[in-house]
Design a protein around this nucleic acid. Structure first.
Length: 268
DNA sequence: AAGCTCAGCAACCGCTCTGTA
DNA sequence: TTACAGAGCGGTTGCTGAGCT
């Protein structure tokens, strides 16, 4: 019945870590050149904690390569970009940001970025525009119509989700990373739909002064080139990184000025 | 100055994934 | 192929401190 606990919780300490505990953990890992088995680590290190707690403390706080301090504007922008691509895959997002942990990014998202997107009239989950009734965070502020760029983002996200759902049915693809998935879906019917959508100029986008020139063919060419490049396709990791980088280079994700605080105020 | 509210963050919980026997 | 253990991940909780009344 039920799941066996990860550790015997009797007599184990919970709550905030003390500096002494931190020292014990760091010393043990340094001394042994790694953490080894997390389950056995607390006993060996002389800690009254469960292995899980030790792992969390190490990965989120004690690891030497962690960059402390507030997120820069660039980092915040990158988090939003990556979240648009990867969704709530905090570990995947963190892996693209040196020195930042998944927990830290998750907290940033939940406390700052989510609200900012909501204020911009975007659904933080889907990055799609919210309905008019719910898009204002503050009724006293002038309503800002959803920028064209965000609509493109929403369309792309929609395409991504559709493709992900489709591809997930094929278990043979289940081992691909998000970036691989992206590359594949871009070359799929969904990718075609998306490209077609943006090669036909819509009245909404053409009438927008700030409208991003969605260079879909150019991006497509870059992605195709990346996927055709044998030197890249031979190495799945490189391929993923290249695809992800190209995606981040996509104009939709580069033109994120609308996220700046002053964009609440209409330039007119 | 005291009490209250809320945002930020560290840590926990439980589910899922992965490796292995 | 299956069952199990360990590790990883994302959602949630609860503590703390800053700001406000």
């Amino acid at each position: 019945m039920g799941r066996t606990p990860c550790c015997d919780k009797k007599g184990l300490k919970k709550g905030p870590w003390t500096t002494e505990e931190d020292e014990l953990l760091v010393n043990f890992i340094n001394k042994n050149g790694g953490h080894g088995s997390w389950r056995s680590l607390p006993k060996l290190a002389g800690l009254l904690r469960c292995g899980k707690s030790c792992r969390l403390r190490w990965t989120n706080y004690l690891r030497p390569d962690i960059k402390r301090g507030p997120f820069s504007a660039e980092e915040e922008k990158l988090v939003i970009q990556l979240h648009g691509i990867l969704g709530n895959r905090w570990a995947a997002i963190a892996s693209q940001m040196a020195g930042r942990t998944d927990n830290e990014i998750k907290n940033l998202w939940n406390t700052h970025l989510k609200k900012r997107l909501q204020c911009m009239g975007l659904d933080p989950l889907t990055h799609k525009p919210l309905s008019c009734s719910s898009s204002r965070c503050d009724p006293s502020k002038p309503h800002v119509s959803t920028p064209t760029t965000t609509r493109h983002m929403a369309q792309w996200e929609s395409a991504r989700l559709e493709a992900e759902a489709r591809l997930s049915k094929d278990t043979s693809l289940s081992h691909y990373s998000s970036s691989d998935l992206f590359l594949r879906l871009w070359n799929s019917q969904v990718g075609d739909s998306f490209r077609n959508m943006h090669t036909v100029s819509s009245p909404a986008s053409s009438s927008s002064a700030k409208c991003t020139t969605v260079a879909a063919p150019s991006f497509s060419e870059k992605l195709m080139a990346a996927s055709d490049d044998s030197s890249i396709s031979n190495d799945p990791e490189d391929s993923s990184d290249t695809a992800l980088q190209l995606l981040l280079d996509f104009p939709i994700y580069n033109d994120m000025n609308f996220l700046e605080p002053n964009s609440f105020i209409s330039p007119l």
